[in-house]
Design a protein around this nucleic acid. Structure first.
Lengths: 201, 201
DNA sequence: TTTCGACCAAAAAAGTTTTATGGTCTAAAA
DNA sequence: TTTTAGACCATAAAACTTTTTTGGTCGAAA
């Protein structure tokens, strides 16, 4: 027997699931609340019983995608032993997942940054940046703890993590846009290798 | 006595100079051919005697700015002795010049990428990228030649140069937008230091 | 408590009119 | 012969108006 609270939670989850599918099918900006309501067989105002606003639904979908991406990253990182292996795994896995999301949502690479900056809320962007910087920081901390990264023991790991995060995303952006200097995978691996060497000293 | 050809060249140069000043004063998109013509005291169709189109004038102004920026970079690099000193000088000087241009043209940092991608011609963007990659490659070549950079002797320097260029510009973009992880100068120096350590191995 | 049709206000889209602008032409001036 | 510019064209952009869409609310019914 399903409780009232469970039924409500099921409907809330269904709204997000359906919204996500519609976003993928029609694009992030084309989907209306009416679309979502029809797709789950309810009236539009019903959505406002379960969610405060369209933005709340949109943010929840985005957060779910990000959480999914971060989960994949953590799973992949868990299978790498050393800090340097983890850094390489990080850049490659992130690139792979980005390609998948781009294909799934039928986006152009050019549009990723525009969507990210203009439509994702500041809170989500901040949270994502903080989380990514934190993942890199954990890798760096492991490198310091295992004496693999001797070159940064005197540095602020938050700042180092941020610098690496930014550099990596610069590579992602440039090489996804144009692979005239070789495949994106090779480029991010090369950066990872140089960075690792730099961290080890 | 000034020859006809010299007079023509003077007028061509004056058109560019005035166009540049107007772009700085009113923004890259607001200036009309009529504006430029009035500012040099001629009729609009006169401009078309000296230039093929507005785009040709715009491109010439942009190319002049880029040439100016690259000249400053080269001057600064010439004063650094070692490859690692040159890399650090490169990232710091580039950052400084970008701040100057942003102030001069009254731009927002957010708009730099948008202008660069949407308004600068593909040819100019390609040329600029190639030139920047080449400058970095020369630094890397010097590092290899002086045995300062032992870690990349087996690599394709074009690709390494591109990877560094992209990573550096990722840092520039992120830290110019938000200095929550410390001043942009510190961040680019930190990246430079880590990269240099990585290149040395 | 949950649902929804009717409704509202504002935004977005579509359509129309007016103005601006890149560019050309041809004749006049130098 | 070279340089210049006013008039003009076609298109784009801007401004304005009308229509449609959409996020969100309300109150009543289930």
């Amino acid at each position: 027997m399903v409780t009232k609270a469970q039924k409500e939670e099921q409907l809330r989850a269904k709204v997000l699931k359906v919204a996500q599918q519609l976003f993928q099918q029609y694009g992030l900006q084309k989907v209306t609340m009416d679309d979502v309501a029809r797709a789950i067989g309810k009236g539009k105002s019903t959505l406002y019983y379960y969610y405060k606003s369209k933005e709340e639904i949109f943010d929840a979908v985005v957060e779910h995608e990000i959480k999914d991406m971060l989960a994949h990253l953590r799973t992949a990182l868990a299978q790498a032993d050393t800090a340097s292996a983890k850094l390489e795994t990080f850049v490659l896995t992130k690139l792979r997942i980005m390609r998948q999301k781009v294909a799934l949502y039928n986006l152009l690479y050019e549009d990723i940054t525009r969507h990210y900056v203009q439509e994702f809320s500041e809170r989500i962007r901040q949270h994502y940046l903080q989380t990514e910087v934190l993942m890199i920081k954990e890798i760096l901390q492991l490198g310091v703890d295992t004496a693999e990264f001797k070159g940064i023991t005197d540095l602020n790991l938050d700042q180092v993590a941020f610098v690496l995060t930014s550099g990596i995303s610069g590579i992602e952006q440039h090489t996804l846009l144009s692979e005239q200097f070789g495949p994106a995978e090779e480029n991010v691996k090369l950066l990872s290798r140089i960075l690792v060497q730099g961290l080890k000293r």
